[in-house]
């Protein structure tokens, strides 16, 4: 059972206090999107063995959504950060790279940069 530190209130919460929300950094496709883009938005999810970004809500705590970067294989948590970001901030990237030198960010075409 995981523990994650909520970046909004600083509480180190255990999994029973959290609500999972699936993959992070999806970009919403609205009425203008074509079928392929919309299908991808609704259904296509990464199934990474390794570095992964996901949404969590501190449901039994401050109620805020936040994002977590962690390794799905070792469960190492590289960091948690604000839900209002379009991709992981620099300090998260640095923490991942420190632990996984081979890893490179892949937010390019479909992830907008600020």
């Amino acid at each position: 059972m995981l523990t994650l530190t909520c970046p909004c209130c600083g509480i180190r919460a255990e999994e029973t206090e959290l609500h999972p929300g699936g993959e992070a950094h999806l970009v919403r496709i609205g009425p203008e999107g074509d079928d392929a883009a919309f299908e991808s938005y609704l259904f296509a999810r990464r199934n990474v063995k390794g570095v992964h970004f996901e949404r969590w809500r501190h449901a039994y705590g401050c109620g805020k959504w936040f994002l977590a970067a962690r390794c799905t294989a070792t469960l190492q948590v590289f960091g948690t950060y604000s839900a209002q970001t379009t991709h992981p901030p620099a300090e998260i990237v640095d923490a991942i790279r420190a632990a996984r030198p081979d890893w490179t960010p892949d937010w390019t075409s479909d992830w907008t940069t600020p």
Partner: peptide
């Protein structure tokens, strides 16, 4: 501390 007591907030 906001948390849960058994099964309730």
């Amino acid at each position: 501390r906001r948390t849960r007591l058994a099964q309730t907030a």
